[in-house]
Structure formats: C-alpha cells, structure tokens
Design a protein around this nucleic acid. Sequence first.
RNA 1: CGGGGUGUGGCGCAGUUGGUAGCGCGCUUGCUUUGGGAGCAAGAAGCCCCCAGUUCGAGUCUGGGCACCCCGACCA
Length: 571
Amino acid sequence: MLWSKAFIPTLKEVPAEAEMISHQLMLRAGLVRQLTAGVYEYLPLGWKVMLKVMKIVREEMDKAGAQEIYLPALCPAEIWQESGRWESFGDEMFRLKDRKKREYALCPTHEEVITDLARAQRFSYRDLPQNWYQMQVKFRDEPRPRAGVIRVRHFTMKDAYSMDRDQNGLDQSYLSMREAYKKIFARCGLKYFIVGASSGLMGGSGSQEFMVPSPSGEDTCAVCEACGYAANIQIASSKLQAPKYQDLPLLEVSTPEKRTVEEVSQFLKVPASQLMKSLLYMADGQPVFILVRGDDEANEDKLQKAIGNATFRPATPEEVLKHTGANVGFISPVGVKGVRIIADHLLKDATGLVSGACKDHFHYQGISVNRDLKIDEYADIRTIKDGEPCPECGKPLGLTQAIELGHIFKLGLKYSQALNANFTDEDGTQKPLVMGSYGIGIDRIAACVIEQSHDKDGIIWPAAVAPYQVLITLLGDPSSEAGRLALKIHDDLIQAGFDVLLDDRPERPGFKFKDADLTGIPVRINVGEKGLREGMVEIRQRKDGQVSKVRPEEIKLKLQELTAAQIWPGR
RNA sequence: CGGGGUGUGGCGCAGUUGGUAGCGCGCUUGCUUUGGGAGCAAGAAGCCCCCAGUUCGAGUCUGGGCACCCCGACCA
C-alpha cells in the first residue's frame, strides 16, 4: 500500500473529546472517527487492526472445535419474551417496529437466537456437544457511552455458545473456551487476569471475566497476590471479622436532624462500625430490610443473589414512610412487623448496635440482633474494601480497576428450559440442553492493546495485531534512486508475504517520522540518500528505537530475525 | 436519570461595554527547503448548534430546545 493513496487521517492535536490515551491515539492515528455518542466508524488502519484481532480469535476458536456462524442482528420480540429478557433487559435494548407494527430488537447478545436455532434442530445426544460462534455487531443503548471504543452502543463482539448433554459436558466446554481465551489474549500481546464474576442478566451458575488492569477501567477487582484469588468486586468476599460491642439494654435516644451514618456516629460518639445501616428495598412489590454494618456498603449484585429472582430496587421515600412510619435516616427493622429481613454475615450475633427508631429524629442504642430482631436470613451482601483478608488465605486483598475484555458463563438450563430447547438422550427422554455462553469484545481488545502499549509519540503495536508489519519510509523523491529502491523493497516484501505500507508522500523526513511513530507500525525501514551512499538502509524497531543498518538484499533476512523474536500473524 | 462543562472554517481555540468574525494547525498554488511535525508569498473555506424573543442592530443579552464531553447512578 502506498501512503500517498491511503486514507490515514492523522491528527497533530488531541481532539477535545478524548480523555483516555487509547481513545486519543485511536483518533490521532486515524483508526476511528466518531459518528455520534457511542458509535464509531473504523477507518482503514483501524479496521485492519480489527481484522487482525478477529483472525486470531477465529483461529483459536476453530482450534478449540467451535464452528463459525453468522446470525442476524435484527430479531423478533417473541423469543425475547419467551426468555423473559424482553422485560429484564429494559432500556438497554434497542427496540423498533416494522411497517406492520411488529416488534423487534437489535440484539445486545444472542442467547435467544442461538437457543431458537438449537431447538429447531431437535438434537440427539449423539450430536452433542456443539459450539457455535460468530463475530458480529451488537447493539446496546448504554445510558452513558464513554472512553472511546470501550463503552459504546454499537460494537463488535465474538460470542460463542456451547450446548452439552450434561453438567459434566458443560464443564469441559467451559474449560476449553477458557483455554482458548488465554491463547487469544496472549497472542494479542495483552497482560490480563481472570476473575470470578457475577452472571448478572445472563443467568446461570458461574462465570469468569478476562480483565485488563487499567486506571480507567469500569470494573473493580479484588486480587490476592499471595494465593491468586481474584474476583470482581460484585462477588468478592473476605474473612473480615466484625468488632464486638458491649451488650446493653435497648435505649431510645434523641438524634435531631442526624440522618447519615456519619452524622449519627459523630453525634453519639460511636464508631461507624457500631451502627447498623438499615436499607429498605422493594422486591417484586414487597418491602425487604437490608442490614449491613454502618461502615459497609450493600452490594447490589450480591443482594440480587440473596433476594432471589425478584426484581428489586431501593424503596422510595414515600414507601419508606409507609412501611416504617419514619423518614429515611431514622428507620430500622426494630419493632417493624411483617417485613422480610436480610442481614449481612458480619451482623451475626452482634450486640450494642445503633440504628433508627422508626421515629423521626430518634435512634436506638444497644440493639442486639438476636434479642431485638428476627433475621430471616444471613447472607454476604456487603462490598469488600481494599486490604481486607483474602477469603482463601487470609493475606490482604488489593483492589484494582480493570476493563472487561471477555466473559465466560455457565448458563446451564436457563435458556433451553425457557425456550424448550431439548435433545433426545440415550434413554429416549427429552432433556434441556446444558448451555454455556462466551463473549469477547473485539473493539476493546484493540483499545486495550493501545492502552498497554504506547509511548509519548504514539502507539506501539505488537506485531500480531499491527495494521501493517512493515513501514517503508522513503526519504526523498519517488523518482530518485532511493524512490525506486523503496518501491522495489515494498514489492519484494509483499511478494514474501509481509503486510507493507510505503510512505511515498512528498513530505519532509521529520513529518513522516512523526506519523510513523504515531501509527505505531512495529518495523520501519528508512530508505534515503544518506544511507544509500554507503549502500545501506536502516531498519528501526518502533518499540525500542533500535536501529540496524543492512544492505537492501539483507532486508528479508533481518526481518525474519526480528520475526523470530515476536509473534507475527501466521500465514 | 442527577451534577458539571462545551457547542464559532476539517482540527485546536480567541472573540472586549451588543456594531455583522479572527488566530494556530491543516488544505490549495508558487518559490525556497529536505534525517524528527520547515520558511516566505498568495489563496480557498464559517446556516457562529437550533428555534423563538429583546434591540435600529445578536457569535455576544433573555427564554426554550438539541447535541457532545466529564463525574455519578446504571451496565453480559
């Protein structure tokens, strides 16, 4: 490819809207352009990177025995209604009507479509397992797109779905996907880690996420350096012990205008951990008290699990008043009848606590959980904090921000039961397929590679996902001796199977060098009069600036030498 | 959805007490230059986000909308 003919709109200045480095560099290097909030156009260089990533994903998925398919993005509402996600996906899902007023979704994921496809097939156990994948656009109406290509409303995902005969089969399918994912991320040159995760809207029995550490990551993960425990904060637990307080008789005290934990603990001169935070939630229309220690935060992902399948939300101030007789800031389950109570494990057997008196401007002191309350169940519903003891080994946990690149789920029977996707087992009975679902954000891989591999001058592509492997920078006129040589090298290298870009633009050397560094192509060959006087060209590596001078006929050899040290796209 | 910010040539920005728009980069042409974003000269390019209002006159003031960005809420 000749740069003079290419559409690579590099930018000298940083566009105002870009905050994250990967976002800035993707714009400046001419990889992408934004069309509207959360919707990006991939320009030639950016799309080449996407194709490289997809090639790696495809190779590893195929090696793992998965089969590539291609499903529609447009999908009738009915199958989403069957699974129940027409409701539960909520505003996150783009919806539209056709001319006959029939309802459709633009798919945010494809479990329903896959399950529908699988049920029509009426599999025998002999056909299982199956694993189908696709790389395709997904739509999500994100409330707030951000961070360039990281959180968007229109993105490319690799999603795979396994169908097995039983749990054991699912475990194996899941493991093989996990291994494939490790290879994919390693080949992309990414440093990543795996955490236990919440299944959220997807449902199912277990899931893990592939994470890339980044200060701008949207997920928080707890990681134990000592034993390797790693979990998304959504599910992370710890061995933290609650402090004990003296058991005292129940006492109502006046706490005028003291509503928050901070206000009450200061006013009564007790530590926040001695308070009991009483939160009222509504689960399927019924009130539920959620109790955690005053210095803890309730964790909604854990709450969802504790509450069960119900849809739940914090109660409104009006509902709080209705069910407790007091306003927010002065409530607790003490003395309230007929409301389900879920308490955090750390409150078990606790005594001497402070919480609301269900009377405005009053709190109780000396609450004893066993004496004054009837707790319906104890569960882990608190969010852990940095430095708490690891649940496995007791060493301190560290919290890290991270970007989610991949998520693998054991779905189990959720979709096959809902949509009646059965197979005939050996004994002739109909059984639901045991399913798994496995996603990778392709756009995010590209962004995360840049996030992890750049310097002040621009991107430093790992060879495996670089848009071009070699950039020839011509210093001089195309009609000069150097120009003819540069073109010959370009043609020869393409012949030899390299992906080559020749910068033949009539620009000054400095200008071209800056663009070369910005776009981050791993190897640059400088061809100019200066070198040619000694009969040499320069080969320079983007990652460390290392330069070697070689004769033109030695270029291929030198590139192969560099090749051996890196992973080049296979051919 | 709450809070904050910004909308002015392709990009980054300035625009005073209201008087009809400017700078840098980029782009075009010419000359000179040519190993880390060159110099000079001449050009082209703007419904000043939209709609109403105030005013003799609005990029600027008032009201209402919209878009985009950031923080939070939310989020396979």
